[in-house]
């Protein structure tokens, strides 16, 4: 089998073709975007603090359709109480549970992001903001949070009660630095239901392990 120069010439042409990429700048007339739908606007309520210029008219809507890098390091594991029902994780979550009781439902989300995602205080204040509570100062951090050492992981857990849409709402949360990532465990729902679940939530936090 012998390759003749014309064969090489043909291969070179193929090589040139292979180098071509989609680099064309296009100009076109497009219809205006239809007005956004209202549902699903809270899909990204648990994403780390980031710029959100959409706040005046559609909080969350802007972030809901955009990708956010999630953590890529080692995963955490946990075991949830049998009374909690697992839900599909979706694109953002590492774990997701529905906690039901007293005819109401609370949502437990587990998310993870690379880096410190703005730091502990910013993230706790983000949660407080969701409940309509005033942000904490640096010096109020210790009195409003509890440090837990669970199998070598340093957890900061909080219990915030406030209001959403005029309804009493509570967040039980824990922030867990794991390697270069930060993990968020957040149980949010009606005040009394979440308050009743607190012992189960704390027990749940004690099952968290680094894989």
């Amino acid at each position: 089998m012998c390759l003749h120069p014309p064969v090489f010439a043909a291969f070179s042409l193929l090589l040139l073709l292979g180098g071509c990429k989609d680099r064309e700048i296009t100009a076109y007339r497009a219809p205006k975007d239809p007005p956004p739908a209202m549902s699903g606007a809270l899909a990204a309520e648990n994403s780390p603090p980031g710029p959100n210029p959409a706040q005046p008219n559609s909080p969350g809507q802007a972030m809901a359709s955009t990708p956010v890098p999630t953590a890529s390091g080692t995963d955490l594991t946990w075991s949830a109480p049998a009374t909690w029902t697992a839900k599909p994780n979706g694109a953002m979550r590492k774990g997701s549970f529905s906690v039901k009781g007293e005819g109401a439902e609370a949502d437990l989300s587990i998310t993870a992001f690379p880096g410190s995602t703005g730091g502990l205080l910013a993230n706790l204040n983000r949660w407080r903001g969701q409940l309509g509570l005033a942000p904490l100062g640096e010096n109020e951090l210790d009195t409003n949070s509890v440090h837990l050492d669970v199998a070598g992981l340093q957890l900061v857990s909080v219990d915030f009660a406030g209001n959403t849409g005029g309804k009493p709402t509570r967040i039980l949360g824990a922030i867990v630095p794991n390697g270069s990532d930060t993990w968020f465990f957040k149980l949010m729902g009606p005040d009394t239901l979440v308050a009743n679940e607190k012992p189960a939530f704390l027990e749940f936090l004690r099952t968290i392990r680094s894989r």
């Binding site: 990429k21 100009a27 076109y28 497009a30 219809p31 205006k32």
Partner: peptide, 29 residues
């Protein structure tokens, strides 16, 4: 996007591959 007209947008879309070059771009629109 030129959004001046209330009925439509005039769009000029520049692909990512071109942005990566870090050059200055001029388009007739």
């Amino acid at each position: 996007l030129d959004t001046t007209d209330p009925n439509f947008n005039e769009v000029v879309a520049i692909p990512e591959a071109v942005l990566g070059d870090g050059e200055s771009l001029q388009h007739p629109k």
